[in-house]
Simulated assay, not measured.
Amino acid sequence: MRTLTFLLALWVLWPVERALAWWDEGHMQIAYVAYKRLNPTVRDRADVLLKLNPDYANWTAGAPVGQEKLYAFVHAATWADDIKTKPDYYDDQVTDSTAKENVPYGHLKHSYWHFKDTLFSADSTPLPAPDPVDAVTQLKLMIATLPASSNASESLRSYDLSWMIHLVGDLHQPLHAIDRYSASISNPGGDRGGNEEKVIPANGETLALHAYWDGLFGGYSSVFGAIYDADHGGVTSVTPDGAKAQLLDPETWAQESFELAKTFAYAEPIRTDKQAVELIRAYETNARDVARKQAALAAARMANLLNELLK
């Protein structure tokens, strides 16, 4: 069983990749709200596909009678992060020949699938070429496999659905859509979506800017806890913009998150170096507001996307 301490330890041990976007709480709240918005026949189809995931029995263990399918869908939102800790899953690189390979339940972690870096320079620092494979390229690939007309295997559709439930949430975390470069950071890979900057929020803890945004909904949570939180001041407390909810292009989502990162995630008092800064009240208030709106929008878009693909 993972704990918040374990998640933070993993963040320290993964120096070349991103932290876990939204952590368990955010991802599961988004999935819960999305599941409630699915059309009944689409929900049934999603249930069938997720049952093919090798972790399905773990997802439903301890679920209340009659709630097994809901618990499975909500828990599936963390699966793409969970495999990072599995001993039979292996690291790979974005430059490997397997980087874009869409294989049902292969044993590669594909950690670079979790974000879409739009490169950004704070001081005209030269920018490298962007990665050829990212969350957007893979989501588009998965979107093409889910409809019945794709002739994909049920196993591949199950695998892609398990990833999609997670990646939709990832792309709505602003710092999963940006990589800021500056001379004061002097890191060959930029700031890795805020992982190079340190902040001190009101609780007095010093942590990476990226981890701060990931933790805005909390850290480790049970499915029951995430559902309760979503219904009591969490994702369900925000009504997403109806017109935006109909925009189902992952590239659009990534661009929106990129702009939000520049406007809010890197707002004052965030610096362009590694010196820890204390966050001001206005920054934390805006961050929580942006996170809730983005999570609610992610849930609505996930439901609309699946209602279209699995109808």
Rank of each mutant, 00 (worst) to 15 (best):
A245H: 06
H210Y: 14
L10E: 14
D179R: 08
G62V: 00
H75R: 11
A61R: 12
R292E: 10
D241A: 01
A254K: 01
W59Y: 11
Y71N: 07
T118G: 02
Y90Q: 06
L38T: 00
R37M: 15
W113L: 06
V65L: 10
A183E: 11
T272M: 10
L141V: 02
F258C: 02
S153H: 03
A276Q: 09
A276C: 07
E251W: 13
K100I: 10
L127V: 07
S149P: 05
E284I: 02
T263G: 07
G106R: 05
L127Y: 04
L297C: 05
D231N: 15
L4A: 11
Y35K: 05
V65M: 06
Q93N: 12
L297I: 05
N53E: 08
A208E: 11
S182F: 02
V133G: 08
Q255E: 06
N39K: 14
V223Y: 04
A99F: 15
A177W: 10
V94W: 14
N195P: 00
T3E: 07
S186K: 13
L167M: 14
L52H: 07
G190R: 00
Q255T: 03
R157T: 03
A34L: 10
A77P: 05
A254W: 13
I280W: 05
T60C: 04
Q275F: 09
H176Q: 14
A230W: 03
A208C: 05
T41R: 14
D44E: 15
I143S: 05
S97H: 07
D24G: 02
L260I: 08
H110M: 09
G106K: 08
Q173P: 04
A296S: 14
A34T: 07
T206L: 06
T137A: 11
P132H: 10
N58E: 11
E205R: 15
S155L: 14
A230S: 15
W113G: 03
T60S: 01
G193P: 10
K293A: 04
E17M: 06
H107Q: 14
P15H: 00
S153I: 02
S184E: 14
I227R: 02
L4F: 12
D273A: 06
A265D: 09
G233P: 00
D179L: 01
A303I: 04
Y35E: 13
A9D: 10
V133M: 09
S186M: 05
L50V: 07
W22E: 10
E259M: 04
K274L: 03
L310S: 09
A77S: 13
L146C: 09
D55N: 10
A80S: 11
H114M: 08
P147A: 13
V65T: 14
T78N: 09
E101L: 15
I200G: 03
P54R: 10
T85V: 08
V74E: 03
I83N: 00
A254I: 02
L297N: 06
A296P: 06
N195S: 10
A9M: 05
S121E: 13
S182Q: 02
L139E: 15
A202Y: 12
L127I: 04
Q67V: 00
D91G: 02
G234E: 00
F258P: 01
I227L: 06
Y159N: 13
I227C: 11
V16F: 15
A144H: 03
T206M: 13
N304K: 07
A299M: 07
Y283K: 12
L279K: 01
V290K: 09
M28W: 09
V33E: 15
N195C: 05
G215Y: 11
